[in-house]
Design a protein around this nucleic acid. Structure first.
Length: 884
RNA sequence: GGACGGUUAGCUCAGUCGGGAGAGCACCUGCCUUACAAGCAGGGGGUCGCAGGUUCGAGCCCUGCACCGUCCA
């Protein structure tokens, strides 16, 4: 590398590293799968973002988690494939393009279908490029050679194949039913595209007069404008109040239509008056009742929500204007006698926000029961998709068990055109893989294709296999399908996850992924959902610009608890940035001492110090913990244990200990310290790489180690030769001692430069810890004279400290305050008294001693011994200080 | 109405064998100690929502309740 370590800036600069290394990775083809057929495959498909616009921070979280898994598996030696792609997002994208056209005063109808679609494709290309650039900024290790789009040729082929197969199996049908109609975007919606909100509305009570003049029947509704489409009144067959009225006729006010009173089990006799008006064309329940009683279906609105010719005097009014007017009129006419405040659930379009109108319309549907059955069986078999966290399985199951037929046709232009043709000559419907040119029934050539397109999720549901080439038996499909894990938010379990599962089972005969990892939403600092209207969204690119990609990656990935929402807080990004900087500087330190050193100069076979053996032991444990964390998708635990290891152990202790040999004269010690430092740093960088890819590559490129890129460096393994429990024991004593001395120095207001003497009376077991590390103690405690002697005589007028296995004296003639020393020891004694009491009480409890596991009891006894020993020393010191 | 999640330090959250309550930030004290002031050293701070129960032992398991949130109907 051109830069000398000593010239490296003292702060990590993400901007200098990120683009450079991403280019290097892409040019080097490190993310392209399939290069080594010997390796085991590991595959993930990205949840395709909509080409509607920019990625938000939720995408960032989702993608970062996947990237961590994929990078980790790649380092573990798998042939890792992460397949990128995007979704055409029918309604959303079309709405955006239409909105832009509207600004120019043009409607899609002005342009015509073909011209309009050209515009949408332009839009798609524009945003696809933006999204790719955002992926790049996030550092995602995607295989761009396999990028897919839901409206690609191949994926469209898959859509058509699926449609035809389902149609031929009788699982797709076309019919006239009540669907959810969005008057704003003027298309049908599926059930889950409707969001139910509690709305403060009214319940309107009306009296419909009986034809025979014998009175009236009282009905209630929340949507009085629909009364214009009433074709019946229904009561419960067991309801005595109305028994005599069943079969009679009422005159519908305003339109003066004669409509029957029918008896139907479905009516809830407890609600309102127990009689309900029936509007078969504008309500799903009424539709069913209407069918049972053969009632006419009268639509009173058009596609825009405007009252139509069937609305008589109200024709031309918007549905809500009509409601107001009709309420006034009916009140005046004495028909509407009571208005009651009433909260009820009103469906809104997920996309446009408009109040959804239940609407009678001819649409295409998927018969869900048989498909759902397979999915339910699969999960019940125990061999099905594994949800992580497990609780989401229940949510999924509940939905799939109660699923209704899926309305898949959309009155849009942007999407997969429904592969159905109608013969104008004989009105035959033709569903085919290839566009037909004549009617197979009558031979006529007057065919026209269905105008509608398919629900976006129809194609997204095929994503894991359509992207791999299905229905062709491609090499990729054989090698990478089914995928290993799908990572997505809980908000699209129904929309997407469920549909991929039943589609995978139906068309490929296997579940599309082994695990599905569900994460939460990224909320703002106050816990509110990020939204455009609140303006509280955080742009991930802004975060990267300010703090670097590694910072946002580390913050988001380690801040999450599986399945729970995470709040975005700038302080935490800053903390992650500081961590990156910490690593940068630790590396700078290491590089300063490795200048001119080559990989082959390094060896861990030299004499290793206590600290060397301790850090290698701790590295072992960290490797195991990080790997275990990733294995169970616990990014938080994996990341935090790494953070702790690097910052608190490697930086705060090991490097401080390492400075002695590194700045000393003992060349052998220097060599082995350099080797350990380089090794531990390299291993730490590897463990950190999935979380912070850029800085780890940047640093490792400076280190004297083998290999092209850290992206393909092997994943660390714990090694039994590094196990050194005795070094851990020694370090614990040293750390406790150093802390105790520093603590005392702080309390006595000693300047850092002021040296003290330290006399240590160590028990036999603790002697090696001190003897082997005298220089370190001197350095880290600011010690001038140091004596370690098991038979040391207590000096006069000295501060006394008690640590595990030793007593420490600081003769501070002229500085020591005897009262302060006594107070300190008294505090210590009180604490130890409490501990001893707690332990003894526990051990005196027969239940504990008899029932607790032996090792727990033994640990407790051991603690008791240590506390008593320590307390005895403290008490003796106090006695001496008081001259007793 | 049903289901699920949450309630732990001032704030945001960990706590996956039931065995002495943790982190980051914030706060207080002292330090520009030649890797790092985006830092170092030291320190204070919690009735683990409430009430019962199981257990030798409960933040953790069971029951009930309260409040916040989400999904479904």
């Amino acid at each position: 590398m051109a830069e000398q370590p000593s010239n490296l800036p003292t702060a990590y600069d993400p901007k200098r590293a990120e683009d450079k290394w991403y280019d290097y990775w892409i040019e080097g083809g490190f993310f392209e799968a399939g290069k080594d057929p010997e390796k085991k495959p590991f595959s993930v498909v990205i949840p395709p973002p909509n080409v509607t616009g920019y990625l938000h921070i939720g995408h960032a979280l989702d993608n970062i988690l996947q990237d961590i898994l994929v990078r980790w598996k790649r380092m573990e030696g798998y042939d890792a494939l992460w397949l990128p792609g995007m979704d055409h997002a029918g309604i959303a994208t079309q709405a955006k393009v239409e909105a832009r056209l509207r600004e120019e005063g043009v409607s899609r109808h002005d342009l015509g279908r073909e011209k309009f679609l050209e515009q949408v494709w332009d839009w798609k290309e524009h945003y696809a490029q933006i999204i790719r650039n955002q992926w790049r900024k996030l550092g995602l290790s995607l295989d761009y050679s396999r990028e897919r789009f839901t409206m690609d040729e191949g994926l469209s082929q898959a859509v058509r194949e699926v449609f035809v197969r389902l149609y031929q199996k009788g699982l797709i049908y076309r019919g006239k039913y009540i669907i959810n109609w969005d008057p704003a975007t003027q298309t049908a919606l599926s059930d889950i595209e409707v969001i139910h909100k509690e709305v403060q509305g009214h319940l309107y009570h009306m009296n419909y007069p009986l034809k025979d003049g014998s009175g009236s029947i009282r009905v209630a509704t929340t949507r009085p404008e629909t009364m214009l489409g009433d074709t019946g009144v229904a009561v419960h067959p067991e309801d005595d109040r109305y028994r005599d009225l069943v079969g009679k006729t009422v005159i519908l006010p305003v339109v003066n239509r004669e409509i029957p009173i029918v008896a139907d089990e479905h009516v809830d006799a407890e609600f309102g008056s127990g009689a309900v008006k029936i509007t078969p064309a504008h309500d799903p329940n009424d539709f069913e009742i209407g069918l049972r009683h053969d009632l006419p279906q009268i639509l009173v609105m058009d596609e825009t929500g405007t009252m139509n010719e069937n609305a008589g005097p109200y024709q031309g009014l918007d549905r809500f204007q009509c409601r107001e007017k009709i309420v006034d009129d009916l009140q005046e006419a004495g028909v509407l006698t009571e208005i009651e405040a009433h909260t009820h659930s009103v469906g809104h379009s997920e996309r446009s926000g408009a109040v959804v109108e239940p609407y009678l319309s001819t649409q295409w549907f998927v018969r869900m029961k048989p498909l759902a059955e397979k999915a339910i069986q699969d999960i019940r078999s125990g061999e099905g998709v594994q949800f992580v966290p497990e609780r989401f399985e229940k949510i999924y199951l509940h939905w799939i068990e109660n699923i209704r037929d899926w309305c898949i046709s959309r009155q849009l232009w942007w999407g997969h055109r429904i592969p159905a043709w109608y013969c104008t000559d004989c009105s035959e419907t033709i569903v085919a893989r290839e566009d037909p040119d004549h009617c197979p029934k009558c031979g006529g050539e007057h065919l026209h294709q269905d105008e509608d397109v398919l629900d976006t999720w129809f194609s997204s549901g095929l994503w894991p296999f359509s992207t791999m080439g299905w229905p062709e038996e491609t090499e990729d499909l054989k090698r990478y399908y089914p995928t290993d894990v799908l990572v997505t938010g809980y908000d699209i379990i129904y929309f997407w996850v469920a549909r991929m599962i039943f589609s995978g089972l139906e068309f490929t005969g296997t579940k599309p992924f082994r695990d599905v990892l569900i994460h939460g939403l990224v909320r703002d600092a106050e816990g509110r959902k990020m939204s455009k209207s609140l303006g509280n969204g955080v742009d991930p690119m802004e975060v990267i610009e300010k703090y670097g990609a590694d910072a946002i990656r580390f913050m988001l990935s380690t801040g999450v608890t599986p399945g729970n929402d995470v709040r975005f807080r700038w302080e935490r990004v800053e903390a992650a940035r500081n961590f990156a900087n910490k690593i940068w500087n630790a590396s700078r330190f290491a590089l300063m001492h490795l200048e001119g050193v080559k990989a082959e100069d390094l060896s861990l076979n030299g004499p290793l110090s206590t600290a060397d053996r301790w850090i290698l032991h701790r590295l072992n444990e960290t490797v195991e913990r990080v790997t275990a964390g990733l294995n169970r998708y616990d990014f938080g635990d994996a990341g935090q244990s790494l953070y702790h290891f690097i910052w608190d152990e490697l930086c705060d202790w090991y490097i401080e200990f390492a400075k002695l040999p590194l700045y000393g004269d003992d060349e052998a010690a220097k060599d082995s310290t350099r080797s350990v430092l380089a090794y531990v740093l390299d291993q730490s960088l590897r463990l950190l790489h999935p979380f912070m890819p850029f800085i780890t590559e940047e640093i490792r490129q400076h280190l004297p180690v083998e290999g092209d890129s850290i992206t393909v460096a092997s994943w660390p393994q714990s090694q039994s030769r590094f196990e050194a429990p005795e070094a851990v024991g020694e370090m614990e004593i040293l750390i406790e001692t150093i802390r105790a001395v520093r603590n005392t120095r702080a309390e006595m207001d000693l300047m850092p430069k002021q040296q003290v003497d330290l006399l240590i009376r160590a028990g036999e077991e603790a002697v090696p810890a001190f003897r082997n590390n005298e220089a370190a103690i001197r350095r880290l405690c600011g010690v001038d004279r140091l004596e370690v002697d098991p038979s040391l005589r207590r000096p006069e007028r000295a501060m006394a400290l008690v640590v595990t296995g030793a007593e420490i004296f600081l003769p501070l003639e002229g500085v020591i305050d005897i009262e302060q020393t006594i107070a300190k020891l008294e505090g210590e004694r009180k604490k130890l008294d409490k501990e001893v009491e707690r332990v003894e009480k526990k051990l005196a409890n027969e239940g504990f001693v008899n029932k607790a596991p032996a090792h727990v009891v033994e640990e407790e006894r051991q603690k008791g011994r240590e506390y008593r020993e320590k307390r005895e020393k403290v008490v003796n010191r106090l006695k001496e200080l008081r001259g007793e």
